[in-house]
Computed example of a mutant assay.
Amino acid sequence: MFLYLTAGTSDFMEMLQKKYDKENMIVLYSGDQSLLMHHTDGKTKFATPHSFSIVDSKGEFTDRGFFTVTYVDIFDDRAAIFEERLKSKDFGFLKEPGFIAYKLLKPIKATTFAIIIQWSGPDSYYAWKMSDAYKHDFDFMPENIAVDHLPTTLSVAPYTKEYMTTPSDNDDTEKN
């Protein structure tokens, strides 16, 4: 399975979703920018997507909820190590109230992995983010690293973007 991401204005992303209504696409809203996810076992309809293979997955995304997308840029020669480490990890968020689904995405022609987690709402995400489980689950994030330098697998500091599935609920969803 593959997951493709493309970004643009809400109007344009909604137009693409309507145009390809038979495809599995979800529009995610965050301020002025929106993200359109296309989940398929074939080719995408997007002209210039960020293309990923799904290498680990728990649950299935729904078209309602709160999404976080964590981008982790890995040195090419360390990608397999990072992927295996995450695939073998016993994630605490899987047991958190409000958790819906998770996908670990390996880039097809790039070096930036994406970790997408869907929650029932932002409160569930923030409760997990304040927990010890977050420190264990996302020990590669800058706020969870005990030293002043990145692990040797990372080329730049990872970051997370937050999204809602409804445009009216996205006023404060972008917190990096």
Rank of each mutant, 00 (worst) to 15 (best):
P167T: 02
L105T: 01
I115R: 09
F99D: 02
M25Q: 13
F46R: 01
E174R: 09
F93P: 04
D132L: 13
F52N: 02
D41I: 07
F2Y: 14
A146H: 11
G92F: 03
D139A: 13
D148S: 14
E162C: 13
F2I: 02
T166W: 07
I117T: 15
L105I: 05
S120I: 06
Y20F: 15
Y159N: 04
D76I: 11
F140K: 00
D137N: 01
F52I: 03
E96K: 15
F67Y: 14
Y102C: 01
D41K: 03
F67M: 06
I26G: 02
L86P: 03
F61P: 07
M13D: 04
L3R: 10
S88K: 14
L94A: 08
M37G: 06
V147P: 04
V55L: 05
L94K: 11
D63K: 12
N144G: 01
D73W: 03
D139H: 10
L150W: 07
M13G: 00
D139M: 04
A7N: 12
K43S: 12
V27F: 03
L105C: 15
K175R: 11
D11V: 08
S155T: 13
L94V: 06
E23G: 01
N170E: 10
K43A: 12
V55S: 12
M25P: 00
R64I: 14
V27L: 03
M141K: 07
I117V: 15
V55E: 11
Y126Q: 12
F82Y: 14
Y4T: 00
Y125E: 13
N144P: 03
Y102V: 02
W128L: 10
K43Q: 10
T165K: 04
K22F: 14
M13A: 12
P107M: 04
K129A: 15
A146W: 05
A127N: 14
D172H: 12
F12V: 11
Y126P: 01
T112Q: 15
V27E: 06
E143T: 00
H136M: 05
V27A: 08
D63E: 13
D139Q: 03
D90S: 13
A146Q: 11
A127F: 01
T173N: 12
E83I: 04
H149T: 13
R85L: 07
I100E: 06
K18R: 12
H39L: 13
F82T: 04
